[in-house]
Every structure is written in structure tokens, then in C-alpha cells.
Amino acid sequence: MTRLTRAEAKARTRERLLDAAARVFAQKGLAGASVDEIAEAAGYSIGAVYSNFGGKEQLFVELLQERANDRVNRAAEIIAEAEPAEANGALGRLLVEVADKDADFAPLQAEFWLYAVRNPELMETYAERMREPRRLLTDLVARSVPDAERAGELSSIVIALFQGLVRMRRVDPDSVPDELFGRALRWLFTGAEADEEQP
């Protein structure tokens, strides 16, 4: 049996805590979840939570950032691997996968948004953590939209569109057909291109 290095063991502990936290937060909400429950669900002591994350709120914010980064990185892989004509359809399938298979994603997003709005002192922390996935997406958009300001605006719209459609599909799958996100992206970017060409 291969023995893990200290860094590998720490990374594994962190990953297990994040996975457990996603389940517990999605079921009980940020306010209702306890550090004890998260640690127990991951198979660790409370000390593991505090030594890796400092506390429940920091764990939650890092969980959201990691999940958002994962989505953007997956989108980048799809765009790199798919033929240009097939990329929007592949991105649509990513939305379907998140909405239908990652049952924790939409509740986690909604939960922390509500918590941050009700606790304004956390708003900047939340905003700061979510700037990284937005920056990654902006870099991705900038490959086809060279204007940096416009790429940033489009990335904000894509994030809002993705989150909104995931929530709608979780509640009413028929209202968000499999191909809708891909079509909406095509409409968005076609419209942005046409707007840029206006005199």
C-alpha cells in the first residue's frame, strides 16, 4: 500500500471535508449545519475542520469557490475539445449534468446568497471569492471577444444565466430543455457581436 505524503494526506482531508460540507449544507442550510455534523460526515474530528478552514463560514465560501472554479474549468475543457459548431450543445449538456446530477449545487448557491444578504459583513468575502471563477470565465470569453470590458460583462451574464437556468431546471425540468443553455449562449454572443458592429 502506497503511503501518502503529508501534503497528499492534507489535500485528501480537505477534499473529504468539502464533499461532506456540500451534503450537510445542502440539507440543513448554512445556519442549520454544525461543524460537528460536517466533521462527522467526513469521518474526522472538529479540529480537522478548523485546521483546514478556520470555521464554518470560511469552509462554505471555499466550497462555493471550488465548485464554481470546477464548472468554469469543465466549460474550458468542453470548448477546447469540441468542434466550434458543437461547443454550445456540449455546454448545454454541462448545465443539464449540474442541474440533474449535482443536487447540492443550486441549494448551496441559493443558501449562501441568502446568508450573505442577511449578513452584510460577509458580502465582500463572498464577492471576493467569486471573483476568481468570474476571472477564469472572462479569460475564456476573451478568446472570442477581445474587448476586455465586454468579455467581463458577458462573463457576468453567462454566470447569471447558468445559475438561473440550473435553478429553473431543478424545479421544473420541462421549462429548461437540454439544449436551451447552448441556444441562449449563441443568442447572447450573436447579439453582443451585432451590437459591437453597430456604427
Rank of each mutant, 00 (worst) to 15 (best):
A87L: 03
E77P: 08
R71K: 14
I38A: 07
A33I: 00
N88G: 07
N88T: 11
V35G: 00
L94P: 03
N88A: 15
A21T: 10
R12G: 08
V117G: 00
W113R: 13
R16S: 14
V96M: 00
R118K: 08
E66L: 05
A110V: 03
E40C: 06
L91P: 03
E37V: 12
A21H: 04
V98M: 02
I46P: 05
I79E: 02
V24I: 14
V96T: 07
S34F: 08
Q27W: 02
E111I: 01
A42E: 10
E37H: 07
T13D: 12
W113G: 02
S34L: 06
A106Q: 13
I46C: 09
N88E: 10
A33S: 13
V72I: 15
A75G: 09
E111T: 04
L30T: 09
E15G: 05
A110M: 03
A48H: 06
A21P: 01
D102C: 01
N52Q: 15
R23W: 01
N52P: 10
A26C: 12
A20T: 11
D104Y: 04
R71V: 15
A82F: 06
A26V: 12
V72Q: 11
A33W: 01
E77Y: 04
A26T: 12
A33D: 04
A68E: 12
S51C: 11
S51Y: 10
R67E: 07
E77D: 11
V98K: 02
A21K: 04
E97A: 06
A82P: 07
N69C: 14
L114Q: 11
D104Q: 06
Q109H: 09
A76E: 14
V49C: 07
N69Y: 04
V61K: 05
A22W: 02
G29V: 13
A41Q: 14
E66F: 00
R16H: 14
A110D: 02
R71T: 15
E40Q: 14
K28E: 09
A22I: 07
G55K: 00
S45T: 15
Y50M: 06
G47I: 13
I79T: 08
L18D: 07
A48C: 09
R12P: 01
Q27K: 14
V49K: 08
L30K: 03
T13N: 12
G54F: 05
E66G: 11
A103V: 04
D102I: 08
I46E: 15
E37G: 07
Q109V: 14
E111K: 00
R67W: 01
E83N: 07
N73Q: 15
R93T: 10
L30C: 07
F53P: 04
K28D: 13
F105Y: 13
G89S: 00
I79Y: 00
S51F: 05
Q109W: 06
L95E: 11
E15H: 13
E66A: 08
R93E: 13
R16P: 08
D36N: 11
N88S: 14
G89R: 00
R67G: 00
G43T: 10
R93Q: 11
A41C: 12
A116G: 01
V98A: 03
R12T: 13
A90D: 05
L59I: 12
E111A: 03
